[in-house]
Design a protein around this nucleic acid. Structure first.
Lengths: 203, 203, 203, 203
DNA sequence: AATGAATGAGAGTTCATTCAT
DNA sequence: AATGAATGAACTCTCATTCAT
């Protein structure tokens, strides 16, 4: 019965996703040690032992919770080359998408910040995140340099501008607790842009 | 022997400070649950049981670690009224001091971020931090409004500008792992200022 | 496999009973605080952690040790209505059964006395025991009243006679350390009866 | 200054008595392990360390709490030879005094019962209490025998009658929680007498 | 594969005892 | 003699991990 086998695989994959989703939520809300396997199992509606069928141990569950959504995030966030227009316009559109993502993925992003904030505790994960950050930075730097040549953007060190923008996004996610649709996110878009270029008029 | 009594008190106060200092370091590096009382005791060079002479339990040690340095921080950071010059100049000087403080107090500030990132877990502490943030915001808003009248500063909602600046400071502290004297902190000062006003030239 | 599930349940129930039995023994011999979970676990031949699978915490183990055998005791001791004959004869038969029970259940009864002796410490348990005592008293009072009408029994306040008899049973259990088959228990039966009626001849 | 020295001694003696009094209260209400030295010190209004000036350690404080009042109790309770009249009258007067004492010294007597109930835990103290009991028994037996010859008293084994009476006193103290002046203590006097002799009329 | 009972290492906390002042 | 800070053994309880079914 090849069909059943395939269905089984799908079901298992879904179950794993479900566990991971709840794990992200709980790790992000309560930290690593204060999140027990039992809580994750209950939240995901699976049996306690099942979690260990899908993940070798707690650490690997945590690693998966941190790393699994990373490639999707990457795809979503490294978007600047998809846009057209002047460099400033492209930066603006990228900011739009980034803020959209940051405003709507608080749980996962707070988990990343939990890792970022304890680099000695999670060296392996930090490596991955640094790698992600460098790619993100690189993709921005290209456009920033273009914008600097057209005088649209500030002529400061482009790597550092990109990095300061990444800091800003994370600071926003850390300090804002409002809903994704709150007006303040719009302001933050503007402020983000002001890290790249002078921007007198309001939007 | 009043002298001895007083000396005793001083000694106790110093020991308490010492424990607190190590607790901040360890909580900030390893989080709440992964920091054991034994580790704190060893780091502070006191016996295991002594920690409980100074702090009722682990939770109150954590609370003290978070709140005790807060008033000093407040004094240091709420400095904008001490400066003279145009609003822009005053904002600039404040940023200087803030970045100085943020670059040099990574341990404590990461602890605050640990709390900020888990608002459901530490509601009482969050209240205190919110209170602190509001005072900080208010002190900035006054100067921002002055600067908006002189057209030196962006005319966006001043409360939100102040908040976005606070986010930026925290984001910087979260994502930068460099030494306090690294040049990038200088750039971050400039970028911070760009949240308040257009700033073509480099510094 | 419903069979295995059911067998499992039975096994669990038996294990719980076993833990409880050893807990009664140890609590009764050593008191609450001097009885450690580890001692109970060892005595019952289970692992330390297992005790917590069956009982939420030490307090609930203690409560169970006190209350669980209470309903069986009740059934056994509230027997006076099962007997036939004159009221005096019925009282006599009840005493027989009560002394039999008190002589053979020293461990459990001493545990009850441990609770009785510290009413401020175990208010919830005291409530249950008081309730039990009142039922016991009521069942006796009915027969005492009958005996008072037939002039077989002393005409003193029947509630208080019943209570004094209960005191006597407990006092016996507290002060006698002899085996259940020791002759002195027979004498105590006689003395118990003398709280209800004059009884010249020896038995 | 011989006066001051003597006064000091007296003060010390009083302080010791005070500590002992509070220790009896607390041990009796909460048991051994649940009574901490600190609680005793606070209740007695002395410093924590002071307790160790008067008692070598916790165990010796407990022993003193149990044994110190014993000689006074002995003097008070072994009174039957002080009375005059027929054996029955003398027994009756002794009961009067015993019940008076038992009704008014609940705290201390419950402490004794705490010890009695755990013979394996306090073997040394049990020896002393057994010794006390035997003396008490002996003093009664003499009068019981006289009364048996005059046919006033039941002719059962006098040692055992005395013992059953002692059980009754303890049972009373264990189960009654009423005030010393409550009427039920009067009934208990009567019931106590009925262990020695038939007693038709109420008192 | 799925379950959840069993285990015991490791944590927080209490508190008798010691000891310096 | 009196104090109370310092110590660490011993306790309760949690929970990741293992394993039998």
């Amino acid at each position: 019965m090849p069909k059943t086998v395939e269905q089984n695989k799908k079901l298992k994959e879904e179950k794993k996703k479900l566990i991971l989703k709840e794990a992200i939520k709980l790790f992000s809300q309560n930290g690593y040690s204060n999140t027990t396997i039992e809580k994750v199992a209950k939240a995901a509606g699976v049996s306690f032992g099942s979690v260990f069928s899908y993940f070798k141990n707690k650490e690997s569950l945590f690693n998966a919770a941190v790393l699994d959504p990373l490639s999707d995030s990457k795809k979503y966030l490294m978007c600047i080359d998809d846009f057209e227009g002047t460099p400033l316009e492209r930066v603006n559109q990228a900011i739009d998408k980034h803020i959209y993502y940051f405003s709507r993925n608080g749980e996962y992003l707070r988990l990343l910040q939990f890792v970022l904030a304890q680099p000695n505790r999670y060296p392996a994960l930090i490596l991955e995140l640094d790698c992600f950050l460098m790619d993100f930075q690189t993709s921005l730097v290209k456009v920033i340099k273009e914008g600097q040549q057209t005088k649209e953007l500030y002529t400061t060190n482009p790597e550092w501008i990109a990095l300061s923008y990444f800091s800003f996004l994370n600071g926003a996610r850390l300090t804002l607790t409002v809903e994704p649709d709150h007006d303040i996110w719009k302001l933050y878009k503007m402020q983000a842009l002001r890290l790249f270029a002078p921007l007198q008029e309001d939007m």
